[in-house]
Design a protein around this nucleic acid. Sequence first.
DNA 1: TGTTCATGG
DNA 2: TATCCATGAACA
Length: 462
Amino acid sequence: MNQIEAYNLLHQGALALSRAEEAGIRVDVDYLERKIKHLARQMEYYERKFKESKFYSRWEKFQGDEPNPNSTVQLREYLYTELGKKPPKETEKGFGSVDKESLTELNISELNMLLESRKLKKNMDYLLGFQREAIDGWLHPNFNLHLVKTYRSSSDHPNFQNIPKRDKEAMKLTRRALFPRPGHQILEVDYSGLEVRIAACYHKDPTMIKYLKEGFDMHGDMAVQLFKLDKYDSSNANHAYLRAATKNGFVFPQFYGDYFGNCAKYLACDWGKLPSGNFLYSQGVDVEPDRSLAKHLVGKGIRNYKDFTEHVKAIEEDFWGKRFRVYARWKERWWHDYQKKGYVDLYTGFRCRGMMGKNDAINYPIQGAAFHCLLWSLIQLDYFLYTYKWRSRIIGQIHDSIVLDVHPDEFFSLIAHIKKITTEDLPKAWDWIIIPLEVDFEYCEVDAPWSEKKELESTNGV
DNA sequence: TGTTCATGG
DNA sequence: TATCCATGAACA
């Protein structure tokens, strides 16, 4: 594809997204007002309790003034200088970190209070943002195509692309404010594993292609290797958890250019959430014998954190040296080409210029082109809804997913059309897409808020 | 204005 | 060489 096609994609994309902005999403302003008051009371409670503690009075003495728990500088001085604690982690600039991971690791009860109040504040900020941007009970988030260096989109006022989802409590609290039009329902369609599939279009690694075409479970296989399981059992909650940890703590970081040391740290740390124990995070200390995963790994010859790091190192070497060696060779070639040319071209006709590190040069074209798949689909869908005067509307987009406000009469036929556009029409339009694409659907009942979203079990036969 | 933290993909 | 891309709030 060439730069004319790239321009047209952005032009048509801007028009389609402007219609989504105009459509907007309903917001329950009464709920916002109630909940904001409620959160304010909860925050006051935590503040009061925190100030009653000995931990606080010592901080007050040290500070010589009223301490500000929101100041990372004050907090780190107090913890790491006055109290002499050892920072579990450092910031990018080399100071002692006071983020959630570090404060949890320090294991001081007053810090848990502080973390709780940070969480409340964060939730409050989302609701205040909605309240500030609401016009007559409607939000109209902006969707930008001109701000991101990879030619992805961004969103602001309010940002539609970072509303809580993983933390169930925060998810319910924030998305409970957002509604479809009266008598309508929210529908979401998202491309599954889009970036992995688009990456495979670039590097064409046969093993990866096989995983994607045959529907084999790459994360499950890696979990078996990392945790020395006999066989992956998806009905086992521990296995399912380890698979998620593997996906987020090894596979994706490796794709983005991380190395075994960080991966080992993340995986060991993450076991803290597992019933079987958090032993390895206590750095080099031998495992506690009464924890089942610990026992299991000891039985396999991995006795401590150091052993585990070596183990992850070996798996990393196998990952790039054997399993995905064609992918690895592509990365080297691509990086070499960038150093020669000073730019990288996307399959979609865009060019990224400027100073890039190795990870940047490799990841930008994948991230950008993956988003363009979504954008192309959104343009087609918008054109279709607009031309045939459907009552359903696109109301937003989150990198690899589209959010719609749907009239119930149009629900099933709309799903069929979306499936055709996203998984059949797109690969026909762009011949560089050599991997089959898949989409999943989620939906809410009529008049239900976004917090009530559930999976659509099967879209066969619609 | 740059840094840190938290949220999403 | 060592985790990619954003927005937004608060602080210094």
